[in-house]
Structures are given as structure tokens and as C-alpha cells.
Write a protein that binds this DNA or RNA. Structure first.
Lengths: 214, 214
DNA sequence: CCGAAGTTGCACAGCGCTGTGCAACTTGAA
DNA sequence: TTCAAGTTGCACAGCGCTGTGCAACTTCGG
């Protein structure tokens, strides 16, 4: 279109525009992973040219977006722990899902794309370690599987979560629905039977399936 | 490059070159999902220009490759059945893995890319239906989970297999190793505990983990 | 040995982007 | 008001491809 910058504050604070760009990028890339800078800039009320005043390159913009998201997830997950490794794992699943669910496609492209390593071993590194620790602890208490290397099990748990993400992109899944699925799939990868997994879910419904309290 | 087409039969049968192109594409795309026609043609001992004598476009070449692969998988899986849904599912996992394991990356890009729908609902449609049927049957016999829609469970099972595929691309996994993992992950998604899954694996070792007999 | 199918080599147009350079303009801040 | 930071609009180069056109040439099949 004409990209009519009609009712728009073309410039006020640079910082504000920068934030607008990140927001727009989040939204547009969530809609189309290959959205061009033109589209993103327009959605932010700016010109493609102006983007280069804030970010050196398209990749840099996306990388920063990924970093921000990862940091947010890390913070959300870091706020809640539980001594029981099984419940802890379930909690992690729930928290991550809740934090990411509204940008599923964007998350998916980051986690399936070249940024994967950078993000997973960066801000989300501690999260992976936590999962490994949970898997190991669960194995030692007899709740989780002992037939595979904990590191591999952790990957499978993460993979199960990603599978739910895939599924939720393909066939739009409700927020609450996905929340349950993530937990069930994760616990399944941990080695629990489906009845055990369901038991965990119902026994701790308040923390696992209900909407946030505070 | 020089790409010296030195000791090469530049042309004999057209059909042979066509096959060579498909082979080369399989290999090159397995190495790099974005391999150009130049690279593929050179690997087949031909020129990029000659490719267009066999395929109307790059996409057509890749699509045909995907179709061929899917048909092969479908045939392999269709040759073996079992009345027990749990064992049947495990068998499917094993067979698919064995058939696909040597072109993991290529498989991954097809199954994660735009060809996904076309292939999964095409030659592999019956396979999906078989999985759904197994899931449903397993649920009715009490062996599999009944807490989720069979269609969703089937997706999770497939997702678990894809997760193993992902893992096997990232950290090179042995053929036999992956075979076990696929089965275990699939049965986990079906709702079995890790002990039950292991039991299935050892109880039917001949058909599930040992190398092909005939 | 002849014709046709198949191949080569080259040139070129096109695609949709990204990243830059630059002159002109707008706006915030002092 | 003044100045600089920020923005716009435009033009342009570049990228790495894909897909075509065409005149040679090579080889197979008859």
C-alpha cells in the first residue's frame, strides 16, 4: 500500500520507535516467519530505511527479539521451583507454555531455525540444566526412567514440548488445552504412564492447570 | 569450479541420467537442504541446464524425490503387521526408522517444510490412519491412553518420532540406537510407562531391535 | 553413416529481497 | 529559534539463485 503514515507520530523518542519495531517484528514474524523488513517497518509506522537506524541488519533485529523472549522465559521459569522433580518438570512445562503460547509460530521458527543453538545454549542454558537435573533426580527416586542417559531423556522431553508446539501451530489449540498437552507429553517422555501423568495433573491442578493466581 | 566432468559418460540413456539426478539430489540435499541445482547437477555429472530437460523446475525435482521416498516408506511399512496394536505401533516405528535413517536430514527438511502436508496426506496418509487405528485399539484394550483424542495422540506419537529424528541429526545417533529410541518415544507418547515400553522392546527383540532377518 | 535425442556453454532476464548513500524534511530538546 | 537527532523517499548495487533461449556439439539408435 501507500503505507500512509497518516495518524502517526513519525518520531518522538528513538527508544519508543525501537520498541515499536521489536513489537511489530514479533507480531509480523509470528504471522509470517519470512516477513520482510518492509512489512515489519510499516507495521511499526516506520520506513524500511529507518530500521537501519536502530539495527545494523535484519538478523540483528531478529536475534535481539529472540534474546528478549528467551530472557523472559528464563525469568518466568526461574521464579517457581519444587522439590519433587516430576512436579518441577510439569511446572516448567506449564510456565514455558504460558509464556510462549501467544507467539507460537515465532517461537517455532526460532527454535527450529539457526538461532536455536544460540538461544538454547544462551539464556535458556540454565533451563536445560534444570531439566536434566529433574530427569536425573526423578530417575533416582524411581519416578522417572533409568533406561536412557538423562541428557538424552532431557532432549526427548524438550522434543515432546516442541511437538506440542508444532501441533498447536497446525491445528489451533486453546491456551489451556496446550498447557495440559505440554505437561502430559513431557511427563510421557520422562517415562510416566499416562495414568500417572494424569494423576500429577489433577493432584496439583492449582499450580498446573488453573490460570495464574496472583 | 572446474567440476571436471572428466571420466564421465556425459550421456547414454536419458533415463539413467534422470535417475542419477534423483540420486544426486537425495545425497546433496541430505547434506545441505538448500543445495543449488548447480551443485546437484554437478554431482550427477550433468550441467544445471540439462536438469531442465528432465524436470520442469527445482521444486518438481524435489517433490518427485519426496514422493519416491514416501512411497518406499509406505511399501516397507505395509509389508508387516501385527494384531497387537502396541506391538504394531512399535513395528511401524522400527520400519520407518530403518527405511529413513540413511537420509535423515533430507527427511527432516521434507517433513518440516512445505512438502509436509502433500506427503503426509498423500502416500503416507494410510500410515497415519494405521497409527490412529492402533492408538484407538490400544485405548480400547487398556494398553494405551484414553485421556486424549486418538487423533491427537497419533500426532503426538508422530511428533515423538520426529523429535528423535531431530535429535539424531544434531547428535549423530547410531542406526540401532535410533531404532530403539523411536520405539521408546512412540510408546511413551501412547501412554506406556518406560518399563512397559522396555518390556515390549525386549519381549519382541527379534522383530524390533535386531537387524532384518531375510 | 545420419538424424534426432540429449547435452553443453553462454548469455540474459527476473525475482525479492537486503544494505547503502544522500538530499530533504520533520520533530524534540535546549 | 536553532540544532541535531531522527526520519523519509528515492535510487542503486548486490546477492544468489531460478528459468529460458539458442547455437553448437556429442552420442545413441537405426
Amino acid at each position: 500500500m501507500s503505507s500512509t503514515t497518516s495518524a502517526r507520530a513519525p518520531r518522538s523518542d528513538a527508544a519508543k520507535n525501537r520498541a515499536a519495531l521489536l513489537d511489530a517484528a514479533r507480531a509480523e514474524l509470528n504471522r509470517d516467519p519470512d516477513a520482510s523488513l518492509d512489512v515489519i517497518a510499516a507495521a511499526a509506522g516506520l520506513t524500511r530505511r529507518a530500521v537501519y537506524g536502530h539495527f545494523p541488519s535484519r538478523d540483528a533485529l531478529i536475534a535481539e527479539l529472540a534474546e528478549l523472549g528467551a530472557a523472559r522465559v528464563a525469568a518466568a521459569v526461574d521464579a517457581i521451583h519444587d522439590a519433587d522433580p516430576v512436579l518441577d518438570l510439569a511446572l516448567v512445562g506449564r510456565l514455558v507454555w504460558d509464556d510462549v503460547e501467544h507467539v507460537r509460530a515465532m517461537t517455532r521458527t526460532v527454535v527450529r531455525g539457526p538461532l536455536r543453538e544460540q538461544v538454547l545454549s544462551g539464556a535458556l542454558g540454565p533451563l536445560h540444566e534444570r531439566i536434566v537435573a529433574d530427569v536425573r533426580l526423578a530417575a533416582s527416586t524411581g519416578a522417572g526412567r533409568t533406561d536412557l542417559d538423562p541428557e538424552v531423556v532431557a532432549r526427548l522431553v524438550e522434543g515432546a514440548a516442541f511437538a506440542v508446539l508444532d501441533e498447536s501451530v497446525r491445528s489451533p489449540l486453546g491456551r489451556a488445552e496446550g498447557r495440559r498437552l505440554v505437561v502430559l507429553a513431557g511427563l510421557g517422555a520422562l517415562g510416566l504412564s499416562w495414568r500417572e501423568a494424569q494423576q500429577v495433573l489433577t493432584a496439583h491442578a492449582a499450580r498446573l492447570t488453573e490460570e495464574a493466581e496472583a
